[in-house]
Every structure is written in structure tokens, then in C-alpha cells.
């Protein structure tokens, strides 16, 4: 594995404060978070339920502006969302009035790519995620796992450098979740991108990540990080896996 130590995403001192409507108090969500993500790395951001990790991801995506700090993508500051960063959402966020292939091609439609080319690219990614045959289905007709596969295909299809995934498997049942984790790893091996994956599931983090960054509870900051050196494909019950799991488990804050 060639070490691409090129820094894709550089977050420096990100802080985020919210005004909660109806309350005079301010909500401090992020407290001076600094993070670097390297090219084609599968980075997992692990944290308990309320740790601002989604907010951090949204800042990187450009959907929210940090109150303080800077974010550089490819050494250039970001000015909002862009096609260089694709996003996969926990609640899928598929457009119900569009078919699977239309959903997958969405990013290309926005960019004005001609129809024939769009459909070809979309088809490629539909095949990649294993949804061949469901091109003309509507999201309402699909299971949770299938919907998320559409979400992943859609993010990939607009050809971003960076994939941001916000607890994408959080809404799935346990069995589907394991299956999807395995599939995602396979998809990513086939078409490598820089990935920022947010989760609160320790097993998932160790299974998927090259590197796991652990966030504290609110106000969120980076507590520690672990490089995962277990060879792929990983087994959830391998002794190394379990040791690491115990270690990380002690590092994470418990939030009730």
C-alpha cells in the first residue's frame, strides 16, 4: 500500500456554537477540533450519541459554517457545499419522486451532464453497489439496505474526491448492517476515495477504518486516535480485533 500522505482535508481549530431558538443559552457543539484526512484514507470518526460528529461532518461538507476555525480541502478554503465532496445520509435522503437511476444520476444532472452520459455513469455505479435490475424502481419500493446502496451509488456517481458518510447504517437492522459494512469495504477497495465515516458503533469503526478518531461528548473535541493495522478482510471475532475493541471502548465517553 503506497503511502499517499497528501492531506485532502485539513480542519484547524473548528468550533461551533448554536443559538437554540427559544432559549437564551448557547449550545457549544464543537470545541477547537483539528483533524487531517489523507488521500484515499478510510477515516472513521467515532463518538457517542451527542458528540457533534455530525456537525463536524456537515462543516466539512460545507452545509454549516463553523463559528471559528478553518477548513481546507486540497489546500483551498471551502466556500460552501460542492461536487468535490459527496455525502451519504443516515436517513438516505433519496428523492421519492425519482427512480433509482434518476436518484443516482442526480449529481450529474445538477452539473448539466448530457443524458446519455449520465445514464451510463449511473448504471456503472448501480452495478457497483449490486442494484442491477432496480433502475426503474422508486425508493418507496426498496428495503433500507437497498436505499442506502442507492445513496452510496448516488454519492459516488457525481465523482467526488471525498466521500462523507454520516452514520449511513444507523437506521438499518443488525443483520443488514453487517452485510452493508462488508459491501462498503469491498466497494471502496474497488474504487478508492478519501472517506470520512461517522459512527457511534465501535465494531463498525474497527471493521471499516484505516484510522479511527475518537471524539468526546459535548462539547466535542478529538480525544485520541488509533491506526487500525489488522489486515483486511477483518473478522469481528479475531483476537486482535477484540483487543482493539476493548481499548477503544475504554477511550470513548459513555453518554446516557
Amino acid at each position: 500500500m503506497s503511502e499517499d500522505r497528501e492531506v485532502k482535508i485539513a480542519c484547524k481549530g473548528i468550533s461551533k456554537t448554536f443559538h437554540v431558538p427559544g432559549q437564551k443559552k448557547l449550545l457549544h457543539v464543537l470545541n477547537s477540533v483539528s483533524l487531517e484526512v489523507y488521500k484515499n484514507e478510510f477515516l472513521v470518526i467515532l463518538g457517542p450519541g451527542q458528540s457533534g460528529k455530525t456537525v463536524l461532518l456537515n462543516c466539512i461538507a460545507g452545509l454549516i459554517e463553523p463559528t471559528q476555525g478553518s477548513i481546507l480541502i486540497n489546500n483551498k478554503p471551502i466556500t460552501g457545499p460542492g461536487p468535490d465532496r459527496g455525502m451519504v445520509f443516515q436517513r438516505y435522503a433519496l428523492f421519492p419522486w425519482k427512480t433509482v437511476v434518476q436518484n443516482v444520476a442526480f449529481g450529474l444532472t445538477i452539473r448539466g451532464v448530457p443524458l446519455k452520459e449520465r445514464m451510463e455513469v449511473a448504471q456503472h455505479y448501480i452495478d457497483l453497489v449490486g442494484l442491477n435490475g432496480f433502475e426503474k424502481s422508486y425508493p418507496a419500493e426498496l428495503s433500507g439496505g437497498m436505499k442506502q446502496r442507492v445513496g452510496i451509488a448516488r454519492a459516488y456517481a457525481s465523482d467526488p474526491d471525498i466521500l462523507l458518510m454520516d452514520e449511513p447504517f444507523g437506521a438499518l437492522d443488525a443483520q443488514t448492517r453487517y452485510a452493508m459494512e462488508k459491501e462498503l469495504r469491498l466497494i471502496w477497495e474497488k474504487e478508492k476515495r478519501t472517506v470520512c465515516f461517522v459512527t457511534n458503533n465501535i465494531e463498525e469503526a474497527i471493521y471499516l477504518g484505516d484510522r479511527v478518531v475518537i471524539m468526546s461528548a459535548l462539547p466535542g473535541r478529538i480525544k485520541t486516535e488509533h491506526n487500525i493495522t489488522i489486515p483486511v478482510p477483518r473478522a469481528y471475532t479475531h483476537p486482535d480485533f477484540l483487543t482493539l475493541r476493548k481499548q477503544i471502548s475504554e477511550d470513548t465517553d459513555l453518554v446516557l
Binding site: 460552501g80 459527496g86 428523492f95 442526480f106 449529481g107 445538477i110
Partner: peptide
């Protein structure tokens, strides 16, 4: 659903595209 609008934004849709491609169909 604001999530749909955010999804559109994450693909680089400008406000006009957000309105016509996402918001209006969602209101149908």
C-alpha cells in the same frame, strides 16, 4: 424535509436548482 434540500446542496445545487429540482417536486 430540510434533509432533501441539504442533500441537493451537498451535490452543489444552487438555490434555483434546489427550488425547481427538489423543493417543488417534494411539494407535489
Amino acid at each position: 424535509d430540510p434533509l432533501l434540500i441539504d442533500a441537493a446542496r451537498s451535490f452543489g445545487a444552487n438555490p434555483r436548482q434546489q427550488f425547481f429540482n427538489v423543493a417543488v417536486p417534494a411539494c407535489l
